[in-house]
């Protein structure tokens, strides 16, 4: 594992190396603009798609083998999750249509899976890839890999933007296009503050996906960074016990963060969709 060497000598480079994506459309290690649609982060897409594939496979495997009378162990476990999510949907969004449940459980499980990549040792997959890269291509220092899709804005905002459009869809579905536009005019301060209302409502609507995306990204990014800092303790044999103890502690704590953030993302999505579906002219403040 060649990436252990720089961890000892050049901590800043080690961390920066780990924070770079395996990307198309940009030179390895090159800085990318904050918004650049010419770039494609291969690692984010591959890992999230692979995890989605695993989730879909397990769902298909269990879904095609359902039994009302004799549920298998796996079915029991999945049933518990489905019932948990369904309970949340029923509690928060009583008149939910049949798409809210699938949306909620997909967010919940997929985000958990993507977040859980954080619990793999920070150098395991990047080191593996660097080894293969060195074998076939060349200098392993030019091999980049970010394992946790949710430590990228793409990963979290991909979901947040979907939620944003779903909010618009549910608004239009419950109020109609005119009703939805009216809610921009008369909300939150009545019809005498119309221009102000428009600004406020636009900010409110934009803030929803932005807060969703940034919250998940921030939590996962910070967690990943801390794992990297703990990994830096490998500078000496004497620091190893500290590294192991801290790594274990943070990993255990991070299990909570991983699930909690996925749960919050799901819960807020349901809340937003529920708010969006609340009746026509009623002010909900």
């Amino acid at each position: 594992m060649s990436s252990v060497e720089p961890a000892i000598s050049k901590p800043v480079e080690y961390i920066q190396h780990h924070l770079n994506n395996w990307s198309l459309g940009v030179e390895p290690g090159q800085q990318v603009n904050i918004v650049d649609f010419g770039v494609f982060h291969l690692d984010v897409f591959l890992f999230s798609a692979a995890l989605a594939g695993i989730f879909a496979y397990v769902a298909w495997k269990i879904g095609s083998n359902l039994s009302a009378d004799k549920p298998s162990g796996a079915q029991n476990a999945v049933e518990a999750v489905v019932e948990f999510v369904n309970q949340q949907v029923q509690d928060i969004f009583p008149g939910a249509d049949r798409n809210v449940g699938p949306i909620a459980i997909t967010i919940f499980i997929w985000v958990i899976l993507m977040n859980s990549m954080d619990l793999l040792p920070v150098d395991l997959l990047p080191g593996l890839k660097a080894g293969i890269y060195a074998w076939f291509v060349g200098d392993p220092h030019h091999s980049y890999l970010k394992v946790v899709p949710t430590t990228n804005l793409d990963g979290t905002f991909g979901l947040a933007i979907c939620v944003f459009f779903l909010i618009i869809y549910y608004n239009i579905k419950s109020k109609g296009v005119v009703g939805y536009l009216k809610s921009f005019l008369y909300h939150p301060f009545g019809k005498y503050a119309m221009p102000f209302n428009i600004i406020m409502t636009v900010i409110e609507e934009i803030a929803k996906p932005v807060s969703l995306g940034l919250r998940l990204f921030g939590n996962m990014f910070a967690g990943e960074l801390l794992f990297l800092l703990i990994a830096l303790l490998a500078f000496s044999v004497w620091a190893m016990p500290a590294q192991i103890a801290l790594g274990t502690l943070w990993a255990i704590f991070h299990i909570l963060v991983v699930n909690l953030q996925a749960f919050i993302f799901m819960l807020l999505t349901i809340v937003y969709l529920s708010l969006a579906s609340q009746g026509g002219h009623d002010e909900h403040h």
Binding site: V32, D36, F37, G38, F40, F45, S48, G155, G158, I161
Partner: peptide
């Protein structure tokens, strides 16, 4: 950063 990956997601 936000890139084309977003569309893939």
């Amino acid at each position: 950063n936000i890139t084309a990956t977003l569309i893939g997601q």
